[in-house]
Design a protein around this nucleic acid. Structure first.
Lengths: 348, 348
DNA sequence: TTGAAAGCGCTAACAA
DNA sequence: TTGTTAGCGCTTTCAA
């Protein structure tokens, strides 16, 4: 038995379809007794209004698109939970789009979302030249960036001060006496990785150190790649005494690589990350990292999106909100090894 | 500038709306030249068909609902990725519903999904008496259970042999010489927790041991609760020598508690989990656990759902597929301490 | 091969 | 307070 429609409800209740519409939308000007009668029929027949038909005539939907690059990266679930939770509270349903770290999927997903006539889109993992923002602009659908953003585009964005955070993290390591600090990059095309690298570079330079290319590795924000990168770093003639990973996931990979190489952390090698994902606080990991207030940022980004959708705000130039990350010192970082002059840092 | 509609395309191309419809749906019986002309106009005007209007007339949508209880639990993202990925490949968009471990939200979400007229729903975290299955049945919307299921209801389900897995895990610990094995339950209303507990009990009994109530604790599938539970267990006059947690997340909490209590793992205490989430393989954790092939199970569950949706199958009695979990022995489990006769197991 | 017309389920003017 | 009517954007007969 398929679903009922409002015409059937109207017939059963002996009223017009318009009155049924007024009742289900809590509109005024319905006699109390009529309302009760209609509600009774709705309940008895198990009627559920059709949101698609409603959207067609009201020209508004209660769907929002959420695009993430890698739901399996423990960084994203908190963000997703936050967005989806607030969306539901606000009457919106979330269409999840997981691009599996493939920027070319952005276009495909955005096309999907436009077909669905979503009210707005939240990008957590935007990359340049995807064409996705242009598609949405042409369709007149508002969107907001969170986490990553695009430089030079006036899109409302909620960000962490990645450069400042990385600067401070690097400074923290320098103050511990480390002079050979490696950096493992995230995905090349992302502002998060670029800005963190910039902070790392600036901090080194400001403190009188040179950026050594051998200490720059690529990790693509994934654990396995960071494992490989760390293995390479540890085999250098003069290995680093500290490794700064552009996110926590990669730091986990780095810790594994150090473990397998017999390098003690933090005695021989300091490893630090960025994000402070929930697992980083496990006693057995206890990763030093920069905490991003992702839940808060995600909520704020959705708030802005809802303001845009519901006409409470217009996208203005430079609507960018920046949150400061916080240094969380745990047990994977420590003073540079005293014998830190050459191969001495390696215990194997 | 809002989006175009097919009428505008028709006008610009000098054809009827019906022809535009034929073109965008790749229907036959359109002259090649006409097709090209229409496609050109579509491209120029940036036309994107409206899925909602289409659904209204075809009476089918390409939306599926995915209900998870706790996206932040690292167990779920893999499942979500798998479902969402296959859904997109099959032309469906996924509406994500995260109940935040609150079964009463099931009803609210299902109502949402019915309003959206989703083509089908995948439950990963069903609990009894939510009313959600009944809602969907009345609406004539097919659904499938994966991970958790409901006994006595003939709903297609894709499951792990939780009881068998827990039985084998308990046996493994018994064979290591443990006689005081504690069990930390998951959420009470879930078949996963109940079945794992049943396997634990059966295994103890089959090997001539009694189930001691003091060794049964509640952990609700979350790390923090398992931390507390473990702390209590370790303070018992005769503490357990092994703790079997109903999922990996809780095992992480147990490891933290042991750490804080100065109890060595696995020398003084073995800790094992269930799931084999990606982080369990970290060297610093190295958790012994039962692996569930979640990605595979999720894909299979969605396949079944799509078969149901697209009429390739009917929900038959007992459409239940069971996968065997696999014991992964790592470093959190070891022989029972030889001094395992009283307080000796505690090092602090 | 193409077009005209009807209608999916709903809301919103307007009229009563 | 309630009903009538038109129409949102699309597909689908049926006829040409």
């Amino acid at each position: 038995m398929p679903l009922r429609n409002s015409k059937e409800i109207a017939a059963h209740a002996g009223v017009s379809q318009a009155t049924v519409s007024r009742v289900i939308n809590n509109k005024p000007n319905v006699r109390e007794e009529t309302r009760r009668r209609v509600l009774k029929v709705i309940d008895e027949l198990g009627y559920v209004p059709n949101a698609e038909a409603r959207s067609l005539v009201t020209r508004r939907t209660n769907k929002i698109g959420l695009i993430v690059s890698d739901i399996v990266n423990p960084f994203y679930p908190e963000l997703v939970e936050s967005v989806e939770g607030l969306a539901r509270e606000s009457g919106y349903v979330t269409l999840l789009c997981n691009t599996q770290r493939d920027p070319s999927k952005d276009r495909i997903y955005v096309r999907f979302l436009i077909e669905q006539r979503v009210a707005g889109v939240l990008f957590t993992s935007i990359t340049p030249r995807s064409g996705a923002p242009e598609q949405l602009m042409q369709a007149g659908i508002p969107f907001v960036f969170v986490n990553r953003y695009l430089k030079g585009l006036n899109v409302p964005s909620v960000l962490t001060d990645n450069e400042g955070g990385a600067y401070r993290m690097t400074q923290y390591l320098l103050e511990l006496g480390h002079s050979r600090i490696a950096f493992i990059r995230g995905l090349p095309n992302t502002t998060t990785s670029q800005d963190r690298e910039a902070g790392y570079r600036q901090s080194l330079m400001d403190h009188g150190f040179k950026v050594e290319n051998v200490y720059l590795e690529r990790g693509d924000y994934i654990r396995e790649a960071a494992y490989e990168a760390t293995s390479r770093l540890l085999q250098l003639p003069v290995p680093p005494t500290a490794i700064f990973c552009a996110n926590d996931c990669m730091a986990f990979g780095a810790l594994d690589a150090a473990w397998d190489a017999g390098v003690r952390v933090p005695e021989d090698l300091s490893v630090v990350g960025f994000d402070n994902i929930p697992l980083s606080s496990l006693r057995a990991i206890s990763l030093t990292t920069m905490e991003q207030p992702m839940a808060k940022m995600a909520r704020r980004a959705l708030e802005i999106l809802l303001d845009l959708i519901e006409g409470r705000a217009l996208p203005q130039d430079g609507m960018i909100e920046v949150y400061e990350p916080e240094l969380i010192v745990r047990r994977t970082s420590g003073p540079a090894p005293s014998s830190a002059s050459g191969k001495g840092v390696r215990s194997q």
